[in-house]
Design a protein around this nucleic acid. Structure first.
Lengths: 331, 331
DNA sequence: TTGTAAGCGTTATCAT
DNA sequence: ATGATAACGCTTACAA
């Protein structure tokens, strides 16, 4: 029978029960190098298990001025690739007993800044920015706080830790494959120019087309948000009137929107038109056999991010990490 | 120019700067009913903004014995429907300044128990269990801790707060539609019997088939895990040899796996075979026009969960909430 | 090896 | 209306 009284059990209770000082309990709990006698240790451990004691992390955090938790700010909850990264991060972190706080900035600088304040006031150990937007608070944050940027750098905030791929090169490769396959006209539904990642991808395609003497007119371009809805809208404007043979999309979400529009227009994919995306969220393998894309290594993102964060919180230097990607040509 | 010294600014600094006591600062910060003179208030607010002070939530949490954060334990990070619920919860919570801690139990009772301990030691305000598994720790937790079960009840742990749909009725409706449409043989890839949700769905189909005099043999059943891989495996075993006209799946993830297998077998969906799922994750609308399913109201889940949690933490009573669902017949 | 006590940042109680 | 102070649970000098 548990002595299930209402009070939560603290280090003091354990000390009393074991007949030692709270310092000794603390030492046992933290396996402190300062040796504790076998006898004391046994006493304490006995008491701990009898009382079912587990240390209060709030007390610990207050004392240590840091809590063993990290925060992730994601820019868009709808993007299933981002979701995949988030989940990977969670796995890696919880393996090591670090809790993860989750925030969704929705690409909104003000919201992002609010969250940054929230996070700091919780004495979180560090922040992962999965696609940050430029903001005043962010600029301040990186100065004094372990911060790792994932997948999207902010050019005006240099010298921070960053993990990503070479978006320009990847876009060039994908575009090359696209041009090798198709003969007809080409539409480009790129992401926001304000996103460095999107800009690099766009530049990659355009440069490649240019190199091959391939004509891209302004009319073939559409600046989409990184969403299915926006992809759908872009496709609605561009497709149908002209006879496109391929669509290059700034990311997979946009591509999903395009796919839907093609379905409505009765266009067969890839029969009538080919669709190219970017990111390759894990669901594609199951649901989107028609999608050609660039596989961004989200598992490696998470692994490296966690590792880098560890170093950073120990006072290590910031570091830029460019990981390899894969071309995924499905149709 | 900011006085950007290294120290973080505490209530003490504000008090000194404003020339008042820390008690006064606290009162201003918390807008305490105990009136503060206009003059003092102004002084304090001035100091606060000059120093850019924001209260340390760890100190607060230690004092209050509770932190303004909640935890979500999700059973499977791969399930995109669960992900959708998680994101909705995050939105609703962060609107109110409550942070969300994220954990993935992976349907593992031991891991779940570890997380429950973690959570309690962080003095989190309450827990959302998005598909819990039965475990000793859970049984103890619900006794002393605001806990809300989402989407999957645990029969051996009654009288807890629960939000879900009538899975049995929904399965009956879906099965009815399926039988109305198809003439041929029927396969059932249900979820684990250990999951009450899955069991109810299974019972719903079987009862419906039975009512209509429809023959289901043991050979047409497959107990799948709630994953695409398992759905794929089940489809590999069942499909091909026999000429099924429809597959009923325990959830959408399973259905995705079945879809992939059908593609490999050259079976047209819905031409050769119809696929039925459960949950309707938001991506379906874009990527899975072939999928018939039950739309579980994930937004309403989140709204009600947050609302119910508020009441619960104020000492309110537990409550079971059964929300309406929608049939989604796409093909 | 062990214990005492200071201090982390708050809030609430109790005087004033 | 305001200020001093105890307490929340913990870790870590420092003392013994």
């Amino acid at each position: 029978m548990d002595n299930n009284s209402k009070k939560t059990v603290s280090i003091k209770d354990v000390a009393k029960r074991a007949g030692v000082s709270i310092a000794s309990v603390s030492r046992v709990v933290n396996d402190n190098p300062k040796h504790v006698s076998k006898k004391t240790r046994a006493l304490v451990q006995q008491a701990i298990s009898e009382l079912n004691y587990s240390p209060n992390r709030i007390g610990r955090a207050l004392r240590a001025q840091t809590s063993d938790s990290l925060a992730l700010i994601i820019s868009n909850i709808q993007n299933s690739f981002y979701a995949a990264v988030a989940w990977e991060l969670e796995s890696k972190l919880n393996e090591t007993g670090t809790a993860m706080l989750l925030f969704n900035s929705n690409e909104d600088p003000q919201l992002q800044d609010r969250f940054l304040e929230e996070i700091k006031s919780r004495r979180v150990g560090g922040i992962f920015m999965l696609c940050a937007v430029e903001s005043e608070g962010l600029r301040e944050t990186v100065k004094s706080f372990p911060t790792i940027f994932l997948n999207r750098p902010i050019p005006s905030i240099p010298d921070v830790s960053y993990i990503g791929i070479d978006d320009y090169a990847a876009a060039r490769e994908l575009a090359t494959s696209m041009l090798a396959n198709g003969q007809g006209r080409l539409a480009i539904l790129h992401g926001p120019r304000s996103s460095e990642t999107s800009s690099r991808r766009l530049k990659g395609v355009l440069d490649t087309c240019n190199d091959r003497g391939y004509q891209i007119s302004e009319d073939d371009l559409f600046e989409a948000e990184l969403s299915m809805e926006s992809g759908y809208q872009g496709a609605s404007e561009l497709l149908g009137e002209r006879n496109y043979k391929a669509v290059f999309c700034g990311n997979d979400q946009i591509a999903y929107g395009v796919f839907r529009r093609c379905r409505e227009l009765g266009l067969a994919v890839p029969g009538d038109i080919r669709i190219y995306g970017f990111d390759d969220n894990p669901l594609n393998e199951w649901l989107a056999p028609w999608l050609n894309t660039v596989r961004v290594p989200h598992v490696a993102y998470a692994e490296n991010a966690v590792q880098q964060m560890k170093k950073l919180t120990r006072g290590g230097d910031t570091r830029q990490l460019i990981l390899p990607y894969d071309l995924v040509i499905r149709a």
